[in-house]
Write a protein that binds this DNA or RNA. Structure first.
Lengths: 114, 114
DNA sequence: CAGAATCCCCAATGATACTG
DNA sequence: CAGTATCATTGGGGATTCTG
């Protein structure tokens, strides 16, 4: 039986990583950890993402309790996404990784000196 | 042209996440951050992983400079893998995530009370 | 024992059109 | 604007076999 991706390893690191597992989740969380954003703002700020994946990932993150969906009252539907209190407990670790990633990018950059 | 997975987003968080992106990389790094291990030890300690993916992921991590491959002198080939100095700079962040993951698992556990 | 080489499937992602 | 519904594609990764 095909085991769903993260079930056979009770490794807590995998549990955490599964939250950000998805082509665009890292980027999305990166933005939202800076400030709450509306759906269209997110889409525009993430070049290349499709509407489908944006919504899908946002729903995943909502389901996991990391972000929350706020409907603003307006005639054209307006929705804002922002980190939850729980999401805020994860954010610092992602920021740390982010800082490491910056160094990693510099370290890697010279390679693509084509 | 199909953009290779992590190129279009210069998001440093994604850069860091790409390192641990792979079905078993989290688990592998988790073990190796505890202690250096031989290939067969790793395989035995990670139930479910196939030889193919173990080797593949190990090679990825070596290429990324996170771990290093040490050939021990012995008649039956013996290889040991361990974190590099660079990998050691990443380890603390993974451990932090790991700690968060433990909490997350507890938080999630009640759901699977089948 | 460590690793390479094939074959192949399916879930994740993309593209696109549609709804309230 | 936010979200849904389909269909097509792809590459990650599982199963298996082979080599030194």
């Amino acid at each position: 039986m095909p085991v769903s991706k993260k079930e056979i390893s009770p490794c807590p690191l995998d549990a955490a990583l599964s939250i950000v597992d998805g082509r665009w989740k890292g980027t999305i969380l990166w933005r939202l950890s800076q400030q709450p954003m509306r759906t269209s703002e997110l889409r525009r700020s993430i070049p290349g993402i499709t509407e489908r994946m944006l919504i899908r990932h946002l729903q995943d993150l909502v389901r996991d309790g990391i972000i929350e969906r706020i409907e603003e009252l307006a005639t054209p539907t307006r929705v804002r996404y922002q980190l939850t209190a729980y999401g805020l407990t994860l954010a610092p670790h992602l920021e740390a990784l982010c800082a490491w990633g910056r160094i990693h990018l510099e370290r890697t950059k010279p390679v693509n000196q084509k």
